[in-house]
Amino acid sequence: MTQDRLTVPATATTPTSGGDPAVRVAGVDKVFTGRRGQVEALHQVDLVVDPGEFVSLIGPSGCGKSTLLRLVADLDSPTAGTIEVFGKSARRARLDQDYGIAFQSAGLLPWRSVADNVELPLRLHGADGATRRGRVAELLEMVGLSEFAGSFPDQLSGGMQQRVAIARSLAENPRLLLMDEPFGALDEMTRERMQSELVRITSETGAAVVFVTHSIPEAVFLSHRVVVMTPRPGRITGEVDVRLGDQRDEDLREDERFFAAVTAVREALHGRPTPASGAHGRDLR
């Protein structure tokens, strides 16, 4: 989709076949040791995300979807198994800044203006002033917040704060975006608008995305592929290929194929056999 404020960053990578996958998770277990004994948060998880692919992780609370994302981001380490990001270890990928990340809370620093928040990763990694200014202007335009550059986070609505956080996660043109329920705290209307914007932005940048959510329509609207997880122990139990095409706009939410995909994901979640539909699911149990 083309809009007049569309800006494609010069260094954006396009989805390519061949080479290393964006994320490769193989045989991962994660056990947390708490006061009441051990909790198996993830059990034998395998997952591959291709470059440029948008993958949602969906499942009820406690299914380990956020834990899996944190492992990919090297915010936690797996108990067993391996995690690779673009063929490197998760730790190496973090040190090399191969991904951008957004959390459920926008996590903006309250003492920095909107522009200064977007600029943060660039400044921390030593980009020069002119580069920083140019990139910040570009990003703020991309998320439609140019006129709020000088505002402070507490002056913005929740949706606007989340857009700033997304701009910040895109600051260094990452080829991989990790998003942990970034729209979870927003109202339904803001949420749908943000989803449309995210579809546009990721198609502009061509980054692979791992997106954690517990909303079925959100996962279906955004993703190429929806990965279904169940708790106790957290594991992957199904996958639904959505493939609703790149022309995703508001009309799609009323489309038959959309409903069919929603049904497929719902049934994968509840563990019933999926009927034939536009989207096809696989039960991995």
Binding site: D74, R94, Q97, Y99, F103, G107, P121
Partner: peptide
């Protein structure tokens, strides 16, 4: 969220 963010920035 802030300390995690700074960790991801290495």
């Amino acid at each position: 969220a802030h300390t995690d963010l700074f960790r991801t920035y290495a």
